[in-house]
Design a protein around this nucleic acid. Structure first.
Lengths: 300, 300
DNA sequence: GAAGTTCTGTGAGGTTTGATCACATGGCTC
DNA sequence: GAGCCATGTGATCAAACCTCACAGAACTTC
């Protein structure tokens, strides 16, 4: 009997949001409900499945292995639903279309967006999430946010607005009490993302370090799941500052070797010489917001 | 704001079931609710999306183009969710595991299953849906239902239990008033399924007919969506009798050229010489149920 | 063409689900 | 141990959802 016994779908949605954010409070914000609602939904879901999806102390919750697997699958499935949904009408043509890296949107851009909206109430903004290539014309994108090195782009004006600090991060539990040496880290499982497979190499280059091959390599589709996996103690991730700032502050993650400035920076791309006025305003705001973002303490 | 505005998920689930079955009543059965609940859910969903998903007279409802696209995407997404769900415990080892073609399960097997359960109350059965290859041992399958020609199988005992009658089917509207000739059908868009790409060729061979290339070819992942597409007037499908029996009876579809016996038959596969007693009982019941299924009227 | 069949649409009413608020609890930091 | 932060939970209320029963629409049958 086909899929007669799917668990409550609203619970799945709540859990998926929790999986991406790693905190019920943030998931609750995204879904516009209180943290209590999320808490109940997830508990209900765990009860239904008979499997623990979260573990650890209440104030520092992590995903279990089963939870991580489920959350990743759900993200994919919900993305697919989102993609096949018939769009009633395209957003008004005058809306500023911003194409942004998914995790950067979630962890950096969206929390700061209200400030832009407050300053420019007449400029409606729509964020779409994508990490792949794009076409300004075909995709109706006014401004894109991507990681870029210094190489020039043929058909885009590139404005770096945020430095990119990276370094190995892991959970305090996994680090144990041992000395936080390069060698110790090298012996732990290493986590990667599909979107930026070169981050470890980049870090080695920038840091002038050299790591032995990892005992285990594990790849994730998204940064946020890699970070949750690191928090769950599954291995060492190459964490960009903008994405792990809160987790470092709260102690969910630690960066024993510190963070160093990476070569690519976060950049705003606009069509060469043709940025719309709204896109220019948004770009200027990005530069200001980037400058106002504190760099990691003690970064090189 | 990632996926802040997904429509009500329960509505999506209801619509997806409706999409597969083509009738609210059947979708309601699957979800164990009344047809009224499904009706409201779908209406609600259409309202939310601002797009018509169904059309046609109330007693002969069809999917719109948008509805078909959405339903197919949802089936895929919900299948994915089902696949990543952590399984609490595997079904008890003594449960008879039957691997069945998805559409055959939905349209033929599941409606008849209560009869088996009534006859064999001590033999718990679990149907899993799959159209691909399988491994008796690795997948824990006791009996599989697949389409097979006459060729022997190296490691399975093959028991045909149902003849396979096929023929071109289409909606009465698409047929119009014209004469139901081979030529007229050949000029209409032709529908295919990914799982049985050869059905048209097979029919041509068996019928001794020869069709010109279709003006449009369109492929679907599942038989049930191909059938819904045919009902919606999108083209001509190669309909197996077991799947279109009800639709032919109700007049939602017509088979102007009749149905002929196809070469492959629906077969029960058991591990060579190692069928469990329960699997043998199930196989015997399949043979009886197949013999009791009326062949299409006037079939060759 | 009247009665019967088979679906879906819908009003009224009840039940369940789910959200909120406010407070409790547990782990951490300082 | 005071203060902070995040989650868990009891009580309560609102909204979502389902059922029942009946109505209506399209078709078939006699």
């Amino acid at each position: 009997m086909a899929r007669r016994s799917l668990p409550p779908l609203n619970g799945l949605r709540a859990f998926e949001a929790f999986g991406r954010h790693g905190r019920m409070t943030l998931a609750a914000d995204e879904l516009c409900v209180t943290h209590g609602a999320i808490s109940r939904q997830i508990r209900q879901l765990e009860l239904h499945l008979g499997v623990a999806l979260t573990e650890g102390p209440k104030s520092r919750l992590r995903l279990t292995e089963a939870g991580l697997r489920l959350a990743q699958g759900l993200t994919e499935a919900l993305d697919q639903i989102d993609a096949v949904l018939p769009r009633q009408v395209q957003a008004e043509p005058r809306t500023l279309q911003v194409s942004c890296l998914p995790t950067f949107a979630m962890k950096w851009l969206i929390p700061r967006l209200p400030a832009f909206v407050a300053q420019h109430p007449d400029t409606p903004v729509r964020i779409s999430e994508s990490s792949g290539p794009f076409d300004f014309r075909a995709d109706g994108v006014d401004l894109a946010i991507r990681m870029r090195g210094v190489e020039p782009s043929p058909d885009a004006d590139v404005t770096p607005f945020l430095d990119h600090y990276i370094g190995p991060v892991l959970s305090p539990e996994l680090a144990g009490g041992g000395p936080p040496t390069l060698e110790a880290l090298g012996r732990l499982p290493r986590l990667h993302t599909r979107t930026f497979p070169g981050s470890w190499t980049e870090w080695e280059t920038q840091a002038g370090a050299r790591l032995p091959p990892a005992p285990i390599d594990r790849e994730f589709d998204h940064y946020f799941y890699m970070i949750e996996a690191a928090a769950a103690g599954l291995g060492v991730a190459m964490g960009p500052w903008a994405f792990v700032e809160r987790d470092l502050a709260s102690g969910r993650l630690i960066a024993p070797l510190g963070l160093i400035r990476g070569l690519p920076r976060v950049c705003a791309l606009t069509p060469r010489g043709q940025a719309s006025p709204a896109a220019r305003r948004f770009r200027d705001w990005l530069v200001a917001a980037g400058a106002a973002s504190p760099p990691p303490p003690g970064a090189v």
